[in-house]
Design a protein around this nucleic acid. Sequence first.
DNA 1: AACATGATTCGCT
DNA 2: GCGAATCATGTTG
Length: 197
Amino acid sequence: MGDLEEGGVVERARALLGRTFTGHGVTVVLTEVEAYGGVEDPASHAFTRTPRSEIMYGPPGRLYVYRSYGIHLCANVVTGPTELAAAVLLRAGRVVDGLGLARSRRGDVDDVRLARGPGNLAQALGLTIADLGTPVTTGSGVGLGERVETPEVVAGPRVGVTRAADVPWRFWTAGDPTVSAYRRSPRAPRATARRPQ
DNA sequence: AACATGATTCGCT
DNA sequence: GCGAATCATGTTG
């Protein structure tokens, strides 16, 4: 993948780690995100323009919520610029407020798993498709908060993507137990050979 | 109108 | 760690 405009998305993604995100009474500190480079990134939903991803072509700072595998919801923050349609997928967080509410939404799981994985995070935050398009800046009950930590950031390939499978645009807080496990897409081409000879 | 495919998750070996 | 479930969305006919 190139190293041009998408630098904005990558920086935005890294800067989200350690910030809080609140959804309907539950607040997490973000511990894992992924950058998606829009029309220039084959792994991005915005690579091919469809009704589902239309929101990504709009102004930055709004929420892109989509249904995954027909069941789960995943949440992104649109970063723009509008011609690029880039976004950051929120993959995991550590619940720091509304713990009881998060537990009731997620059922009987260990606390570190309350918001581990994008589907679980969306569920813990009580997100629905109705949150699609919500600006993450306004205090509407859903959105970003302050940066409360400055974590050590680790980068690696994105989870579950088949195209651009080796682009290291997944970012997470080093050593944090709330980060989801890495899983490469079975359909992705084999990783480039590690060992010379 | 039918088919293929996941930016996943949970349960079992 | 691995594999199947499950259905909305996108793609093809």
